[in-house]
Amino acid sequence: MLRLGLRADWAGLRDILLQHGLYGLLLALILVFGAISHSFLTVSNWTQIGTAACFLLCAAAGEVIVMITGEIDLGVGSIAYLSASTVYLTSAFPAAFSVFAALVVGLIAGAVSGGLVAYAKMSSLLTTLGLMIAYRGVSLLVTGGTVQAVGPSIVRLGRIQYVHALPLVVLLSLVLMCLYQIVASSTKFGAYCYAVGNSESAARKVGIGVPTVKLIAFCMSGAGAAISGILSTMYLGQVTTFTGRGMEFEAIAAVVIGGTSLFGGRGSVLPGALAGVLLLTVISNGLGTRGVSPYVYPFVIGSVVFVAIYLDSLKNWRRSSRAR
């Protein structure tokens, strides 16, 4: 019997740090903020963190799926805005219908991106960039470029809190994350996503329908973005021009921080993207409880993202040099 593959079982300290350092960092940050600011570790603050994060969590969950297949979706922010606008448009109808309509809109928007990328073989970067602008234009048109209130039934949903601490919106976003993670790790489709991200040509050779996989991934991303938009209308009671604005950048940043690679083929929703979103939210929240000027935020977040993508490139470089 030939005993093979022994070198594969040995992982150096640097590799372990690169893969799991994020969680240590997150923990350290929480402890530090908890120490320097007494309002940080309170239940009400964490409810706030949860509500601040839940919209990004939904978008991030979908983005993970798309990035695992090796593509990218820059449209999530605009799709969220589009869905929120749909909720506004259907204010006269019962809440369930509004939610359903908004979800369908998100799915269709995702399908358009997916179709163009998967079947017309267009670059996902540029295509979703273009669609992001187009969808934004449509949403601005529909809402008249200003703030619009949504139906009272939706608003009522946004006020629901469990145990006085866990808002419904937060709970829903966590449920979505669990769902998406299960899809990624335990279903055939999930395995196909990783396969396509690893090597499209190899996936094709073993008979995986690559375009279909990508299309479904973009639909999932569209759905995630849609739910993000729906949740934001629930929470705010309105749709504004800031809905979803810049969310694609935050989502990608959070997801890459959380271990999903820009090169495709690896990543997770839970615990990865969750930790990434939490990191960004905790930083903003922590800085806020210390009264730091909001003008500093972009610098801090930008620097964190810089470090995250540097590490991602490092990991990728180590991987490819080991393959030689």
């Binding site: 970067l125 810049g246 950048f249 990608i252 940043a253 890459v256 820009l262 972009p298 610098f299 977040i301 930008g302 993202v305 810089f306 993508i309 540097y310 991602d312 490139s313 470089w317």
Partner: peptide
């Protein structure tokens, strides 16, 4: 050796 897309995305925000 970082990826241009993300680096310049960050710089854009910065």
């Amino acid at each position: 050796r970082m990826i241009p897309f993300i680096v310049t995305l960050s710089t854009m925000v910065l």
